[in-house]
Design a binder for these strands. Sequence first.
DNA 1: GCCTGTGAATCCATTCACAGCT
DNA 2: AGCTGTGAATGGATTCACAGGC
Lengths: 208, 208
Amino acid sequence: MSKIPEPTIERLVLYSRPLETLLRTGTLVISSGKLARLCGVNAAQVRKDLAYFGEFGVRGVGYDVRDLLHHITSILGSNRQWRLCIVGCGNLGSALLQNENFKSRGYFFVAAFDLDSRRTGKELPGGLTVEAAEQIQDAVKERAIEVGVITTTRDRAQRAANLLMQAGIRAVLNFASTHIRAPECCLIENVDFTVKLENLAYHLSKTG
Amino acid sequence: MSKIPEPTIERLVLYSRPLETLLRTGTLVISSGKLARLCGVNAAQVRKDLAYFGEFGVRGVGYDVRDLLHHITSILGSNRQWRLCIVGCGNLGSALLQNENFKSRGYFFVAAFDLDSRRTGKELPGGLTVEAAEQIQDAVKERAIEVGVITTTRDRAQRAANLLMQAGIRAVLNFASTHIRAPECCLIENVDFTVKLENLAYHLSKTG
DNA sequence: GCCTGTGAATCCATTCACAGCT
DNA sequence: AGCTGTGAATGGATTCACAGGC
């Protein structure tokens, strides 16, 4: 089996979204061309991406919506539940804890920590209570947490990551706008809206 | 002048962050190798990225920190202030309005809208009051808003974008996890943490 | 006619490797 | 000796174009 490009994985998530809608609205079959337009990508791209994982379509017809969606969620590993914790319970962290996009896709926050001990004990919307950083080690093991979400300030992000990694976490979603150093075995995904924003600014100032 | 790769722009933002820290801590000069390590990229990459815009370094020495930072912010257009508005004043929107990363880099929210009229008039942390969608057209013009930030639910994102574009906005930062269709003239940048999260899940379930 | 699956071709970005400067 | 700037080489990913099946 050949190696699968990283961008392909990201696009699979993209494809799954309109598919969910199509399933709800009762569309049974969709062509690569139509799905491509819904996601803003090239039709051949859609076909190639899917072909990495099998032959899901029918020539001359298209893809069965329900079928394809099941295949994709199964490939992505989102056909099961995942347990998350958050480190950094400021505004952004609190907002994420309440965000429906996590729950609805099977991602559940089961712990919330903060490196600032003054926040310990604070009750958060969503039912969690802020725990101290010292609890990370035990909580990760006892509650079988697999993914850590970092929403601290920039200067605390590396420390947060270190604590998570020491506790055995191997996947981190980092919202702090800084590069986190980590060994190969630990995956870090960065969500950095300041990068995207400055990107917009660049293009605006270029075109006048 | 040759065409500048999109990833290069994103990395310039990345470079600017450690440079700010270095400037504060009094480091005068930095080599591409050291800057690269701080950002988790290749040294040749740093040099090539910078070389697109000029010869900022000194052979045998490195880059002057203050100088390089000024060059980068000037290239990115972040040496001036930008006026933003937000559409969608739920938890995420409210959190972003309070987020220091915007202000500290010269991005100021000057209006907040919501497509749900029941939210109109609500006061938000940060000093803004929720305005109705019908106000977008006038507000964008009168307050010289250049960038729109969408934090609505998925099903309202396209409508939000249409309103912004009709009002003359040509740059949109989209936090809703859906693809927004827009003409060439309007730039859309997507910040989608569900994509990153599912990406992590994929890699975790692959490696066991 | 319409649509998928896929080798081939193209395009783009990253990395290498070294000449040239301090 | 150390570091930048850059052509050349490499490595990937996207798109094209068409054979094969409905």
